[in-house]
Each structure stands twice: as structure tokens, then as C-alpha cells.
Amino acid sequence: MQTATLHPYTKLSLSIFFSLLSVLLDQPRSLFLLALFSWLILLGSRPSKPVLKMHLILVLTTVWGLVVSQGLFYRDFPRTVLFCLIPPGESFSGLCLIKEGLFYGLVQALRLVAALSAGLYLVTSTPKELLFRAVSALPLPRGLTLMALAAVRFLPAVADDLRLVRQALRLRGYRPLRRGLFYTVKTELSIVYPLLAKAVRQARALSDTLLTRGFDPLLPPPKGLLPPVRLAEKILVAFLLLAAFLVLAAKILFWLYFQGVFYEEALRPLYALVRCFL
């Protein structure tokens, strides 16, 4: 399946759908399936090697960080100690790896992987230009979308400037830690001066441009500069929204039952479905 050619709004809907479900779902199997589908959609867009590498690094660090941290610092019960890095003492409860914590961390990691893959799919498979146009055309105040887009556009430039500032410092003989920790921290923090000054200058320039080019933040978004959404994609988006709504409704009904607020005999199959799969 080639998912790269989908309309930006379809991609945005897919991304929102996966993010929403990653929050709503609790069952590990369902979350695993969600993360898997999200990953397959990313793969379907035939990402480049650097994108895949970045994805892999992000996934591995996310999973590793969450699993290990939850495994070590899980505080709920029941708890099954697998082994202790530092055994408990009289005044210290020890640092042990907890089986339930590892499992809990894995579940949380699956949520993040699902949302991360979907977000990466949207951002890396859509030409930046098309994505910008799509966001600009959203029915939001133009002042908001344009500013958000300008911020995104300036991010790579800030990264370049940061690299240049650091290189310039290095050429002036600065080496981290060579002149002590305090000097290093002071110098590292001072890097913000030129970046901030440039940001202010650019913000001023941008505001001058907007003022002189007839920009009105209350104007409706520009229309017609996006390709139309295909019927099949419209149906897909409708289906996704409906599915997300149904899951949300089912979870709410289950929560009401679980809290003893509302129970309906006829909904028992639904409660079972939520308990086992959602």
C-alpha cells in the first residue's frame, strides 16, 4: 500500500486517529496492534533511510527509557521483584527491577510509538509546502496558523545558527570544561544571547513584512490552493472519525459502569468487549 500519496488532510486525520486511540486504548494487545498499524502506514509511505534511522532511534530510546524507568521506579501493587541492583537496607527501600513496572512501561511505550509513527508519517511523507498549505487552509484564525508555520520554518534556521555560534566559539579557543565547570556553564548559557537577538530581529522583520503586505490576522484562510480530497479518502476519513468516536463512547460507557454511575444489562457485551480488547 502506497500511503505517501494520500491527501494531507487524510494523513492529518490518520495521525489524529492514531494519537487519539493511543490515549483511549489500555489493552496491551490492542495497543500493540495500533502501534504496528501505525508503523506499517509509515513504512507504506516508503520513507528514506535517514527517516527510518531516525524513527528507529526514537522508538528504541522511547521504549528503553520508559520500560527501564517504570521497571525501576514502579510503585503500585502487586509487585514482583525480578532482581535488585541495590538491595533494600534499613533506611532504603532498594533499587529493584519490577516485572509489573516493566510491563507497564512497555504499554506506555506502545502508546508513544503509535503516536510517534503516525506523526512522523504525516511530516515526512508530505511535501513541506503541501503541509504548510493544508495547515494554512484550516478553519482557524490566520494569525495563528501563519505564526505557527513561521515558527516551524525558523526552527531549522535556529539549529543552523546554533551550530555556527558554537563553531565561532570554538574558533575563539573555547573548549567545554577546559576552564572549569562554572566557566563552561556560563559560556554554554550565553549562547542564548545571539540566538535571542536574532530571533527578535527576525520577528521584527516578519512583523514589518506582514504590516506592509496587507496581512490581516482575522482574514479567512485562503481557499482553492489545495488539491481536492478524493471520494475514497473522504470515506476513509469518515470511517476513522466514526471509529474513534465509537471507541470513545464505549470507553465512556464502560467508565460509567466501572464507577457505578450507570449500568445497562443490554450493554454487557459492550462492557466485555471494552474489558478484553480496548
Partner: peptide
């Protein structure tokens, strides 16, 4: 120092 480089945007060199 062996060399000094003045960047095209000299503002990026002002850190103090």
C-alpha cells in the same frame, strides 16, 4: 590563536 573567522552575520559571535 591560529585563525579568526568573522561570520557573515557578526551578531552570531556576540555572546557576552
Amino acid at each position: 590563536l591560529p585563525l579568526g573567522l568573522l561570520l557573515q552575520d557578526p551578531d552570531l559571535m556576540l555572546v557576552r
